[in-house]
Structure formats: C-alpha cells, structure tokens
Amino acid sequence: MLELRLVQGSLLKKVLEAIKDLVNDANFDCSATGFSLQAMDSSHVALVALLLRSEGFEHYRCDRNLSMGMNLGNMAKMLKCAGNDDIITLKADDGSDTVTFMFESPTQDKISDFEMKLMDIDSEHLGIPEAEYHAIVRMPSSEFGRICKDLSSIGDTVVISVTKEGVKFSTRGDIGTANIVCRQNNTVDKPEEATIIEMTEPVSLTFALRYMNSFTKATPLSSIVTLSLSSDLPVVVEYKIAEMGYIRFYLAPKIEE
C-alpha cells in the first residue's frame, strides 16, 4: 500500500513539466527515504535524478519498496488537471497495475480521482559516484534560463568556462558569436540574486544547448540553480526543491574529436 499526500501539489506539477520532454517513460521508486526517479533521455546523453524526501509529505505511507513505471507525458496530462493550490495524493495498492492521483481543492469542495495505468519499464539504475567538482557556480535560475535561451538563438553548443573572475557562457553559429560573463557577486541584498563561484581550478566544458534549455524548464521549482563542473565529468545542473529535495540533471560534455 502506497499513499503520499503532498499539500503543495503544485510542486509535483512543476516537476513533471520539468522532465516530461526529456524522458518519455520512467520508474518512480518509492521507499522510506522518499519518492525518487532516475532516468536517462533516449539518447543517453542526459540523466535526471529526482528526490522528494518522505518528510516533505504531509502523509507518507510506503509499506514496502515499490517501483512504478509511468509514461511521463500521460502523468503530466493528469497532473495538469490539478489546480495549482490543490493537495495531491498518490495512491497505489500492492501488485496493482494502476496509480491513482487524488486532487483536493484547498476548501475541500472539489475532489477528483484520476487513475493511470502503470507500465513495465526495463531501466538500468546507474551508480553516480560522489565527486569533487573543480568549480561550483550558484546563480539565479532565471538568469541561467535567460542565458541558455539567448545563446540558443545564435548557436547549438555552449562553452561554460569558470575562472576566479566569473563564469563565461560562449557560443558560435553561422551568424556570429556570443559571450556572456557573469561575475561573482555576493553583495546583493537578496541571496537569491547572488552569483557565487567556488573554484579549485579553472574549468572549461562544451555542452549541447538543446539539453541545457530543456533543464531550464525546472526554473519554476527554485530561484537558484547550481552548476557543478569538472573537466572529466558530466555537468550537474541542480534545482533544489524547498523543504523536499532536488532535481538534478547530468549532461555529458562534447569533446574535441
């Protein structure tokens, strides 16, 4: 028996909007720790890892570990039917091939049930080693989203270079080139507007902008994004989900042939 009650149902709606275009089908894993997902895009270039900790739910019952295969497009369709202020409850019986989403309006005057078919998904769970990153950039998520969108109108790839002075996003295309430098700035009034760079050595990596732009669909989940870069690892683009966990996107770099 599984029963997860999330008072801030809009979080789950936002999570699905953030990942549904990157991953078609995925297993949601439910354990005492929380509600989680790990899935790769169909080209195996990007990986998304989601964790919503059990403590973040108003009610969290998960009698035994359960893996539920879902089509994320269909799940997003169902969650779109929940109001932004609705409480969302997920329910599944042991051995059932369906999951039920229950939506309650804040005043309890409207209660909806949506039952969705589960699917068998053969997916490999990858071990993501703990890593020391050469550079960690923390910046406003809206700023990062704007940069990725702007650069993708010029080129297909972005070179992210981190030095002590700042983080530079560069692209080139048929019409020309673009460079955007964000300097470290931790003296702003609001912490969510700061750009903070922790660096042990300079790093410069190239990534496909198509994927970066897809990751920025998680912007509504957090005002801050963290980019973790090492010369020999996929970049980690992390959006923390307040009080609950995180959504992390891993993207393999492009390298000179």
């Binding site: 769970h125 393999a252 390298i255 042939e257």
Partner: peptide
C-alpha cells in the same frame, strides 16, 4: 567538430 559523449561513459550500472 565536437563529439557528444554518452552518460554511460561516466556512470556505470549498479
């Protein structure tokens, strides 16, 4: 020309 690496080049199956 840049070659797109694969995430499986970095993370292994458990």
């Amino acid at each position: 020309p840049c070659l797109q690496r694969n995430i499986l080049d970095y993370f292994n199956g458990e």
